[in-house]
Amino acid sequence: MNLLRRNLPGALVVGIPVLWILVFMLLPYGIIVTYSFWLKKYPTFLPAFQFGNYVTLFTDPQYLRVFLRTLKISLLVSAASFLLAYPFAYYLVFRCRSQALRTWLYMAVIAPLWVSYLLRAYIWKTILGTEGVLNSFLMWLRIIDEPSSLFLYNQFSMVVTLTYIFIPFMVMPIYTALEKIPVNLTEASADLGMSPWRSFWHVTLPLSLPGVAAGFTLTFCLSFGDFIAPFLVGGPDGNLVANVIATQFGAALNWPLGSALAIVMLIVVLSIVSVSDRLERKGLTGGT
């Protein structure tokens, strides 16, 4: 009794968050896992323990197709974010002489995070549309004679929009990783006879890999679970896994199948996170 009273504050400090996680994170997952074994039966579904839903996912080609498409879009978004974010972060950390300009540019990339996701996606609709800003601009430049419909409602516009929306999550970790690299390491590399390009290749890039891995994980997982971009800027061939899950829980009223799909997706995301986590830790300890 005494012991409990003495430890009560401590028990609360630890206990409440643990309880919170149990109730609000693990419990929903538990429910989803349970549903994923149930049976769809008009009008709703019946409790059961069977793997039919998972079998459907792996045998009906439509799910594999959507899965591969989602994978492709997420990888493209991550790659595009990386190609844009890395040189940008590199410039900020190593080349930008003015502290004020650096802060300003960094904020310019991060600030959109405070703007609603929907609004940001919507902006791209007005840029890429047939009568949008991009088309007007290209016509003004006389590069094209009539508006092109190639920019919007396809996978290109989804990649562009998702890249724009998620690129802060690539810039931030890379910036942090680059900032942590002591300047004297690149100096040492130059001192030991390496040209700037080779120094970058042998020293800066490997040492920033943990940041790159974190950025890839974040942008990949965020795009992988996205369902708004397909809705706003995607075309007829833009359905992603999250849209299919939404359909199964909504229009199709097939929660068991939707749950099974959600579980498969969760497993994919978790394995990517753990791989990248291992990569990051390897980077930090220098690989031992």
Partner: peptide, 11 residues
Amino acid sequence: MVFQDYALFPH
């Protein structure tokens, strides 16, 4: 050059 804090490559 031998740098003040050695500047050894951690990786």
